[in-house]
């Protein structure tokens, strides 16, 4: 056994990874070899230092945000799985429910157009929040803080932040 192998065996002994017979043989060598005993002691000291020494850290983003990202990814995965698993919706279902509801929606739209130019055919998000996204390519995520004081719509979209020079004068 060369020096390198011996060092690794001593380490394995410290780590409790040696089998009974090998461990016994090495322990016998340790008794007669001061150098190996010192190595054993040093490795044991380093192990002792490292035990439970992982520095605790706090996630650098808020728990709400972290969860919103996770739940969004879970939702996306489940939608994708459903999309792959299920056949397209039947025409019967379409005729039975979607067409009459679309009729009602059109009437509501006609009424509401007299008051505002904004269409009301939006996605209901729960509560009184509605979201309309015009580009399917843009990934979007919405969430509220626990106390509902801040509602956030996060878009996977980079807008141009440059200011007009005229605007800079006005600011």
């Amino acid at each position: 056994m060369n020096e390198n192998e011996t060092q690794l065996k001593i380490q394995a002994l410290v780590d409790g990874e040696l089998t009974g017979r090998e461990a016994e043989e090495l322990r016998a060598r340790l008794e007669s070899d001061g150098g190996l005993r010192a190595l054993h002691a040093r490795l044991t000291a380093v192990r002792g230092l490292m035990a439970g020494a992982e520095l605790p850290r706090t996630l650098p983003e808020s728990g709400d945000f972290h969860w919103s990202q996770i739940s969004k990814a879970i939702g996306h995965g489940e939608r994708e799985a459903r999309r792959l698993a299920k056949p397209a919706l039947g025409a019967n279902w379409l005729l039975r429910w979607v067409m009459p509801l679309a009729g009602v929606a059109c009437l509501v739209l006609v009424l509401s157009r007299q008051q505002t130019t904004m269409p009301d055919l939006n996605i209901l998000l729960g509560g009184d929040h509605e979201l309309e996204l015009t580009d399917d390519e843009i990934d979007v995520m919405t969430f509220n803080t626990g106390d509902d004081a801040i509602s956030i719509v996060w878009l996977d979209y980079s807008i141009d932040l440059q200011q007009d020079s005229l605007q800079l004068w006005l600011d």
């Binding site: 904004m118 009184d128 509605e130 979201l131 309309e132 015009t134 843009i138 509602s151 719509v153 878009l155």
Partner: peptide
């Protein structure tokens, strides 16, 4: 181009 409309 409109990206998004949020109502609340």
């Amino acid at each position: 181009k409109m990206l998004v409309q949020k109502t609340q």
